Every structure is written in structure tokens, then in C-alpha cells.
Amino acid sequence: MRKITAGSFVGKKAWDALDIEHIEDASIRLHWTDSPYRWHVNDGAEVFVVLDGKVDMHVRNNGHEEILELVVGDIFHAACGDEHVAHPQGVVRVLVIEKSGSV
């Protein structure tokens, strides 16, 4: 057993992660970042929970882009094949649950 305080985790570079657990074929990781990720499509579902800060999640559906504002406590779910990119507004910490090895 261990206690993890999300607010104390600081990465050395954008999207650094602290591996928390692997359950069957899923990884649970705490990410720290202050820079956008990149447009991507996961090869499985992704759950993205904002623990600290604010994130603008850009999503594309049928060529149409939408921006979802995520704040502390908000959860974003991307199904397999959903195109998206996270744009943090300052420093953020997010919990990401996804298929192990996913981008």
C-alpha cells in the first residue's frame, strides 16, 4: 500500500507520468504537464480525470472540432477511435486510465 498526493507530483518534462498500477491490460498513470499533447487516436478506450488545473480537450467528430473545458473533478472518456488532444491551461495533473502501451 502507498499514498500518492497528486498535487506534489512534478514531472521533469511535459506529460511525464507516475505509473500507479497495471490492472490486466490497463495502465493507471498520474500525468503532469504544462504543454499540449498531440492529436491522437487511442487503440482502446481512455478515461482522463482532471485532478489539478484546467484542460481544454479538443475533439474531432466527422471533421468538426469541438473544445470541451475540463476542470478539477471532470472526467473525459474517449472511445477507441476518438480523435482528441489535451491543451492544459497552465500546470495540470491528470489521472489517465487506458490500454497499456497506448499513445
Rank of each mutant, 00 (worst) to 15 (best):
I4C: 12
I4L: 11
T5D: 13
A6T: 12
A6P: 11
G7L: 13
F9Y: 14
G11P: 09
G11I: 03
G11T: 06
K13H: 13
A14Q: 09
A14D: 07
A14E: 09
W15T: 11
W15D: 14
D16A: 06
D16L: 09
L18W: 09
L18E: 14
L18Q: 14
D19V: 11
I20C: 02
E21M: 11
H22L: 14
H22D: 14
E24W: 13
E24L: 09
R29Y: 12
R29G: 01
H31M: 02
S35Y: 15
R38P: 13
W39V: 13
W39F: 14
W39Q: 13
H40W: 15
H40Q: 15
V41E: 15
N42S: 06
G44W: 04
A45R: 03
A45D: 11
E46S: 00
F48G: 07
F48Y: 15
V50I: 12
V50Y: 02
V50A: 04
L51E: 03
L51F: 08
L51Q: 06
K54I: 01
M57Y: 03
M57F: 02
V59D: 06
V59K: 02
N62D: 00
N62C: 01
E65R: 00
E65S: 01
E65F: 03
L68V: 02
L70T: 04
L70C: 01
V71F: 01
V72R: 08
D74W: 03
I75P: 03
F76H: 02
H77K: 07
H77M: 09
H77D: 05
A78Y: 10
A78L: 05
A79F: 07
C80M: 08
D82V: 04
D82P: 07
H84L: 04
V85S: 03
V85M: 07
A86M: 02
P88D: 02
P88N: 04
Q89L: 12
V91C: 14
V91N: 15
V92R: 06
R93Y: 02
V96N: 10
V96C: 10
I97L: 09
I97G: 04
I97D: 06
K99S: 13
S100N: 15
G101H: 06
S102L: 09
